[in-house]
Each structure stands twice: as C-alpha cells, then as structure tokens.
C-alpha cells in the first residue's frame, strides 16, 4: 500500500514534561500555534480536535496512544476543506526523547495514500509551528506572530 509521510525533528532545550505540557495545554498551544489549540482529555480513546481562535474545528479525531511525557499518537482528519476531508484519517505521532540538555521532538504524519493533499498542506504548516514552539520554550517569545500561514491547511481564507 502506498502512503505519504513526513518526519519533522527538532531539538528543544527543555524537559520532556514541559514539552508535553506545551503540546497539550490549550492556553500554551495558542501562543505558538497561531491562535489554534487542541481540545482533548489526552488519554487513549478520548476525542481530539484542533480548534481555531474563532472556535472553528479544523481537524478532528481521537487519541490513539498516550504515554506522557514520551509518546502521543493522534488519529487526525481534516474538517474544513472538502478535498482534504475526503482523504480520510491520517496518523500523527509525536515522540519526545531526552537528548543531553535538550529534548528531541519527532513528529511523523502519515496517511495511507499517495499523493496526499493533506500531507502536502500540513507539511507546510508544521515547520512554522515547531519553530515557534522551540523559540517559545527556549526564549519565552515566539519568532512569528503573523496570522496562520496562508498556504497551510488551516488558513481561514475560503
């Protein structure tokens, strides 16, 4: 079976516990995810959604695996754009691993089809989100404060 995957890795000078909080706490997420935040109990089986600052649900699914502060797997379906929603479920895996004074964060996003518009769309947004997350945890401020990148799946322009 063909699949589309991207793997993004970054090293953040923080602790796995702080990184886990940054990835799951709604108020913290809004600071680096351009106003978006995740809503979930963050335990295996619980529903999950990614919500804009206006309360619109852009992505929804469920937590597949939750092992704080090491591993989080989310079943992820886009909701906003019909052509992306039609591609169905994708799987987003976040892994945190202590590495010296830093934590290695690996984000793998996979869908069982190729090519995938969803993977193409989210792969554009992730580097900006991760980069913002890194600078927020390391310096206390984000580098990019602009509204959500226009080319991403979450742009509110349609």
């Amino acid at each position: 079976m063909t699949r589309s995957t991207f793997v993004y890795v970054t090293y953040i000078r923080t602790t796995p516990e702080k990184l886990w909080t940054a990835l799951t706490d709604a108020e913290f997420m809004k600071q680096y995810w351009f106003g978006m935040h995740g809503e979930s109990e963050w335990t295996a089986g619980s529903p999950w959604s990614l919500v804009s600052s206006e309360g619109q649900i852009f992505d929804a699914g469920a937590i597949v695996e939750s092992d704080p502060p090491r591993r989080l797997v989310i079943r992820w379906q886009h909701q906003n754009k019909p052509e992306l929603k039609a591609e169905g479920d994708s799987l987003c895996t976040m892994e945190m691993e202590a590495s010296g004074p830093a934590v290695k964060l690996s984000i793998t996003h996979t869908i069982e089809r190729s090519p995938s518009k969803l993977i193409e769309a989210v792969s554009g947004g992730w580097p900006k989100v991760i980069s913002n997350l890194k600078s927020l945890l390391e310096t206390g401020t984000t580098a990019l404060q602009e509204p959500y990148p226009a080319e991403s799946a979450h742009a509110v322009n349609e």
Binding site: F6, V7, Y8, T10, P127, S131, K134, S135, A143, L144
Partner: peptide, 16 residues
C-alpha cells in the same frame, strides 16, 4: 526524510 525545521529557523534568523 527531509527535515525542513532548521531551514525555517535560518529563514527567521537571517532572512525575515
């Protein structure tokens, strides 16, 4: 896999 995260960091640090 290509990991574009450090390129984004260069962009923010040196280009933007």
């Amino acid at each position: 896999y290509l990991n574009p995260v450090p390129l984004q960091a260069i962009y923010e640090r040196w280009i933007a």
